[in-house]
Design a protein around this nucleic acid. Structure first.
Lengths: 119, 119
DNA sequence: CATAGACATCGACGTCTGTCAATATTTACG
DNA sequence: CGTAAATATTGACAGACGTCGATGTCTATG
């Protein structure tokens, strides 16, 4: 298998940029990072990510997550897909159930991008 | 003037929540934090914030910022207002010019909320 | 193989958001 | 005071987004 194409997860793009306060983000960088922020720019997705990330065992089944909200199952599925597509969540199917798991590296680099204050 | 009402900047709300990966965000917490993420969920605003935060002297005049984009002056003004209203930027008028300045504490607490990985 | 359950996808709907042109507001200066 | 320049506000419009009900897909189980 050729290694000519390296596929980076979208969330890894946050690791490609210096902290916001260090030097101006280029237009391209901003357009890479914005989708990650968009993924977090919804209260339901924030809670979903937090539920998954803080869940015992590091993962949570969709069946657990559905019950935590007064929202339809398709809506929860939609939000999980947004988080998954952004690279902030990992997904694994085991039997009938699907387990989501946070990607700490993605969260860490995104947090550093925002929070690291320049010297 | 009475001091019976203490007004917290919206961005200070990020300091009120444990890291996402530590324990599940409550609905109320998520609804407080989401507007901050929304403010960052646009490539133009990301670049604006980055331009201001990394600018020499810690502040930047709107006149400097307008020139960095192919967007109308009202549009830039709108984005700056979103960042200001969210508490991520400070504003000071000096003469005819308005200078924006980043709020490092707000950025730091938001970054910690996202990036701090639980033990 | 038929059925039930877990999850995803689709299509539709109302609302929110980014953008602009036009206009208002504030300030300096002659 | 009147004018010019910097910034904010308003109103309008197209496109994006969150939500739902209906339906599709996959898996275990009988």
């Amino acid at each position: 298998m050729s290694k000519s194409l390296i596929v980076l997860s979208p969330a890894d793009t946050a690791a490609c940029c210096p902290p916001l306060s260090r030097e101006p983000l280029s237009r391209e960088q901003a357009e890479q990072v914005a989708p990650l922020m968009k993924a977090l720019a919804d209260p339901v997705r924030l809670r979903l990510l937090s539920l998954v990330a803080s869940h015992a065992g590091g993962e949570a089944c969709v069946c657990d997550l559905n019950d935590a909200f007064d929202l339809s199952q398709p809506t929860i599925s939609h939000h999980l897909k947004v988080l998954y597509d952004s690279g902030l969540l990992d997904r694994e199917k085991r039997g009938v159930w699907v387990y989501y798991r946070a990607r700490p590296a993605a969260l860490a680099s995104l947090g550093a991008l925002i929070g690291d204050t320049s010297p």
